[in-house]
C-alpha cells in the first residue's frame, strides 16, 4: 500500500517535472533566440565599425595649386634704402635684360582618418536595414610640392649674368612661403576641397554598405 502510494506520488512528481521541464525548455529556447539575434545585431554593428576603422587613412580629394614667380631686376620703387637704390641705378647702367619666370605645383590632400571612428559612431538597424555612420571630420593637409621648377620664360641678354640655381631655389622658397600663407587664408578653396572629399566619402561608404545589405546614412563630425 505504502509502495502504491509512493508510486502515485512519484508519478505525479515526474509529470510535474516534465511540465516544468517543457516550460523551462521553451523559456531557454526563446532566450537563446533573443540572445543570438541581439548578439548578431551587435556583431554586425561591430563588423561595420571594425572594418571601417581598420582602413585608417582614406584619401578622398586632391587639389593642385599653381604658383608663378619671377626673377627680375628690382625697380626704383621696389627698394627703400639707399644701398638698394644704388643697386637699381647700377643695374640700369648694365647692358641687357635679365628676366626668368618660373612655376611649380603644390598638392593639397583631403582625407578621413577612419582610425578615429568610435563604436558609438556606427548604428546598425538590421530590421530596417539601415546603418547610420558619423565619419570623423575631413582633414586637409599639404601633401608636398613638385620638385621641378618649370621655366615659363627666360630672357637674359647683353652682358647680364645667367640666372643661377641658388636664385631659383631662393625664388622657390619665397613662393612656398606665400603658398603656405595663401592656403591658410583661402577658406573658399579649402572648403571646396573638403566638400569634394565629403561627397566622395559618402558615395564610397554608401556603396560599401549596399554590399552589406544596408542603406547607409553618412554624416560628418
Amino acid at each position: 500500500m505504502i509502495c502504491l502510494i509512493g508510486m502515485k506520488y512519484s508519478l505525479k512528481i515526474t509529470s510535474d517535472l516534465f511540465r516544468w521541464k517543457g516550460f523551462l525548455m521553451a523559456m531557454l529556447m526563446a532566450g537563446s533566440v533573443c540572445f543570438s539575434s541581439c548578439e548578431k545585431k551587435e556583431e554586425v554593428q561591430l563588423d561595420v565599425y571594425e572594418s571601417l576603422r581598420e582602413v585608417s587613412r582614406l584619401e578622398l580629394s586632391r587639389m593642385t595649386v599653381g604658383k608663378v614667380g619671377m626673377v627680375a631686376d628690382p625697380g626704383w620703387d621696389d627698394v627703400s634704402d639707399w644701398e638698394g637704390k644704388a643697386r637699381v641705378l647700377w643695374n640700369a647702367m648694365k647692358v641687357g635684360k635679365r628676366i626668368g619666370v618660373y612655376s611649380y605645383d603644390t598638392y593639397v590632400i583631403a582625407y578621413v582618418d577612419l582610425s578615429k571612428l568610435r563604436p558609438e559612431d556606427v548604428t546598425v538597424n538590421r530590421e530596417a536595414g539601415t546603418v547610420d555612420i558619423v565619419l570623423p571630420k575631413v582633414e586637409v593637409e599639404v601633401d608636398g610640392r613638385e620638385p621641378q621648377l618649370h621655366e615659363m620664360h627666360y630672357r637674359v641678354t647683353g652682358f647680364r649674368s645667367r640666372i643661377r640655381p641658388e636664385e631659383r631655389a631662393a625664388l622657390k622658397a619665397q613662393m612656398a612661403k606665400e603658398v603656405k600663407k595663401e592656403l591658410a587664408s583661402s577658406r573658399q578653396g579649402v572648403e571646396k576641397l573638403r566638400k569634394s572629399a565629403e561627397d566622395k566619402a559618402r558615395a564610397w561608404v554608401v556603396g560599401l554598405a549596399e554590399n552589406w545589405d544596408l542603406a547607409a546614412k553618412v554624416d560628418f563630425k
Partner: peptide, 22 residues
C-alpha cells in the same frame, strides 16, 4: 646680381576625387 623675386597669387588648378589608401 641682386634680383627681386616677384610672385603672382597662387591659383587652384584643379580638384580631383579619388579613394586611395595611404
Amino acid at each position: 646680381e641682386t634680383p627681386k623675386y616677384k610672385t603672382e597669387e597662387a591659383r587652384i588648378k584643379n580638384i580631383s576625387q579619388m579613394v586611395e589608401l595611404c
